[in-house]
Amino acid sequence: MLDAADAHVVVEGLVKIYGDRTILHGVDMIIGRAETLVVIGGSGAGKSTLVRHLIALERPTRGRIVIDGTDIASLNDVQLAKARRRFGMVFQKYALFDSMTVFDNVAFPLREQTKLSERDIREKAMTKLKELGVDHAATLTPAQISGGMAKRVGIARALVMEPELLIYDEPTSGLDPVTSRTVDSLIEEMRERFGVTSVVITHDMVSAFDIADRIAMLIKGRVVAQGSPAEVLAVDNADVQNFVRSSGVDVTRFEHRGTRKTAAELALRARERKSGRVE
């Protein structure tokens, strides 16, 4: 079990209220270093709101966010800007700068945050665009490319800085299945090569089980299940079971990369462990 002391990110009792609507009802979460946490849950459950708090784009109504042992609410503007150099985010609606070309969008964080020469910047940015298969669009503006391409440019822009904490808000929505798997392997690769901690919001259950070390399921602003994929599958909660069933993933055939066990087997074993019948 992860403990708060050596975790990368700790969310404690996070409550967010907009006007008179409570969006997050006391979320607790621990994200370990170099771990991939997948957040699943229905539309409007508050997933985007939750991850926006992790990089201080929103202020908690109550509760706190601790990253590397520091409560991010205690940072001033300059300290926060410094901390943010270690974060990256892929936005749900791409958030590309439409006054710049695709290339300049990806080069932007490098130009702002590093002292690299323009040649190195070009090299790095083009490499990332190529990995995502959008290098041919480098000179176009965001208005001239498709949604799926914009999504990939947004991913390239977040990955190019190789930050320690990467947040992906639905990185594969709107992408074809082949490209989705490419994005999954890029997320994996970032972790393996650079030890990146990732938080991935997704509705794509195939990628959820493919890349997750742990899964957190958010329903109506509450975490209803949190743990390894197998643990989450084993949670005895109608909402969770319903969500997994509706996702269309065949849990009896789905194999987890690490353990080579099907999700159903894992679930069974988790259930057995829980009830004390360990083999």
């Binding site: 150099r85 990256g88 702002e112």
Partner: peptide
């Protein structure tokens, strides 16, 4: 206003640009 609603202002902030 467009940059705000399409999260471009948030993106700037995330990239440590005020």
């Amino acid at each position: 206003g467009n940059m705000r609603s399409s999260e471009q202002i948030d993106a700037l902030e995330t990239m440590a640009v005020n």
